[in-house]
Simulated assay, not measured.
Amino acid sequence: MTASTLEKAAANQAATVEFRDLRREFGPTVALDGLGLTVRPGEFLALLGPSGCGKTTALRMLAGFEHPDSGAVLVDGQDVTRVPAHRRDAGMVFQSYSLFPHLSALDNVAFGLRMRKVRTFERRARAAELLELVGLADKGERFPHQLSGGQQQRIALARALALRPRVLLLDEPLSALDAKVRLSLREEIRRLQQELGITTLFVTHDQEEALSVSDRVAVMRSGRLEQCAEPAELYGRPATPFVAEFVGTMSRIPGTLRGTDVEVLGQRLPVDGPLPADGATDVDVLVRPEAVRVTADAGGTARIVATAFLGAVVRVSVRLADGTEVKADLPTHEAAGLGTGAPVGVSLPERAVLVAGRKAD
Rank of each mutant, 00 (worst) to 15 (best):
V294T: 02
T307H: 05
E233S: 11
A342G: 10
M61A: 05
R191F: 10
K359F: 02
A229H: 08
A298P: 01
I304R: 00
R24S: 01
C53T: 07
D206H: 11
T120N: 11
G223N: 00
L183H: 14
T38D: 02
E43V: 11
A176P: 00
T340F: 07
G266R: 01
H145L: 03
A125M: 04
L106M: 11
P349G: 05
D79K: 12
P28C: 04
G91N: 03
E208A: 14
T200H: 00
Q152F: 05
L99T: 12
V346N: 03
A302K: 10
D215A: 02
T301V: 09
T256Q: 14
L37C: 11
R166Q: 10
S70N: 07
A308Y: 00
V75R: 13
A85W: 03
L354M: 13
P343M: 04
R82Q: 11
A72R: 15
A218H: 09
A229Q: 09
V283W: 05
V134K: 13
V217W: 03
G197Y: 12
P50R: 03
T256M: 12
L201H: 06
T199L: 03
P343T: 05
R119T: 04
A158Y: 07
T38K: 15
G34E: 04
P84F: 04
F111Q: 09
E187K: 12
R293T: 13
R142N: 06
D278K: 11
Q146R: 08
G49M: 08
L330M: 01
M92L: 14
V314T: 14
A356H: 07
G236S: 11
F111D: 08
G140H: 08
R268W: 05
R237Q: 11
T332Q: 02
V294D: 02
T16D: 08
C228P: 06
G223A: 00
M115W: 01
D178S: 10
A58L: 03
V80N: 06
Q13R: 15
A218D: 09
T29P: 07
R60S: 05
V313M: 04
E233Q: 13
G27H: 14
R126A: 01
G112V: 06
G77V: 00
L59Q: 09
A280T: 15
P276H: 13
G223F: 01
A162C: 03
V292A: 08
P101T: 09
